[in-house]
């Protein structure tokens, strides 16, 4: 497989000195489905916006199909499609008009674009809503409209920034079916999400971002295997200790001191994030990362039952 997207040492410092992205490098192969996972404020959206030309990088380089973003702007923009996390469709225009304006903006006109728009609206299940103002479509339908609008000009890679944010479970599933179908037809998909289950289920490869940096990168299975696929969670005095193991038996027989509750479960991507960053997703929303202290680092949790502690794995 050839590399379709290559990002090298991408950086962004906003006015006021806020370092949103601190040297991101990655390369993605054509046809892949790639997830950028991280809590709010990790730098995912800023990275995707820089790649798509909506935000000026402070440093670094971006190339799609070997074509540098700084050269031949029109060709570069033609090779990408972006679905923004905002519902940025023209509410007063119909679904069809939204698509047609996009096609014209991309230099497509006439019968060719009309046929493609019809085909895409049908593909997204919006064929019957083509003459309905976008503002009267449901959230899920508007998101699907955004997705097919981004495909009108036949991009090489589709970026989706939090594609299911704010949608109900049914709509989320429908969006994912659409994205998977696209990927199956050969489209390279790059999405950001803070829903861990989405990255785990749908991505072939995941990069976990924290504080503007990629802290780990690999397939969900490899990332989980890397820390141990079984997790032993011990609760004691309002503290959670997580330890990862290669096998369930090993996790069950491991000794622990005076816990009040013990859970043995499969390791999830969130555990990988906690392990690598030293904090949970929720804690990472602006809060400083907590220290990881060797084998049994303990981290207190809040009032809610969903404790998030850290422990370096005892896996083989």
């Amino acid at each position: 497989m050839s590399t379709i997207l290559s990002v090298t040492d991408l950086r962004k410092t906003f006015t006021g000195g806020v370092e949103a992205v601190r040297g991101v490098s990655l390369s993605i192969e054509a046809g892949a489905i790639f997830a950028f996972l991280g809590p709010n404020g990790a730098g995912k959206s800023t990275t995707i916006r820089m790649i798509c030309g909506l935000c000026r990088p402070t440093g670094g380089s971006i190339a799609i199909d070997g074509r540098d973003s700084g050269r031949d702007h029109a060709a570069f923009m033609r090779s990408i499609g972006l679905v923004s996390q905002h519902f940025n469709v023209d509410d007063e225009l119909t679904a069809y008009e939204n698509m047609r304006i996009h096609a014209q903006l991309c230099g497509m006109g006439g019968r060719r674009s009309a046929a493609r728009i019809r085909e895409l609206l049908d593909f997204a299940g919006l064929g019957e809503c083509r003459d309905r103002p976008a503002g009267k479509l449901s959230g899920g339908m508007r998101r699907r409209l955004q997705i097919v609008r981004a495909l009108v000009h036949e991009p090489r890679i589709l970026f989706l920034d939090e594609p299911t944010a704010g949608l109900d479970p049914m709509s989320r599933e429908r969006i994912w079916n659409l994205i998977r179908e696209l990927n199956a037809s050969g489209m390279t998909v790059f999405f950001t999400t803070h829903y861990i289950d989405e990255a785990e289920h749908y991505a072939e490869r995941v990069a976990i971002m924290h504080n503007g940096r990629i802290i780990t990168d690999g397939s969900p299975v490899a990332l989980i295997e890397g820390i141990g696929p079984w997790c032993r969670e011990a609760f004691k005095d309002g503290m959670t200790t997580r330890t990862h193991f290669r096998g369930r038996e090993e996790a069950e027989t491991a000794t622990g001191d005076g816990y009040t509750r013990l859970t043995i479960r499969r390791t999830q991507l969130e555990d990988v994030f906690i392990m690598m960053s030293g904090s949970s997703f929720e804690e990472s929303d602006g809060a400083p990362a907590r220290a990881v202290n060797g084998h049994d680092a303990h981290v207190g949790h809040g009032a809610q039952g969903g404790a998030h502690g850290n422990a370096h794995g005892g896996h083989a």
């Binding site: 909506l54 990408i80 940025n88 023209d90 903006l105 991309c106």
Partner: peptide, 14 residues
């Protein structure tokens, strides 16, 4: 507000 301007910027229009 509705961020539709991004559509212009995302196009090859210039």
């Amino acid at each position: 507000v509705n961020r539709v301007f991004e559509e212009f910027l995302l196009s090859p229009a210039g």
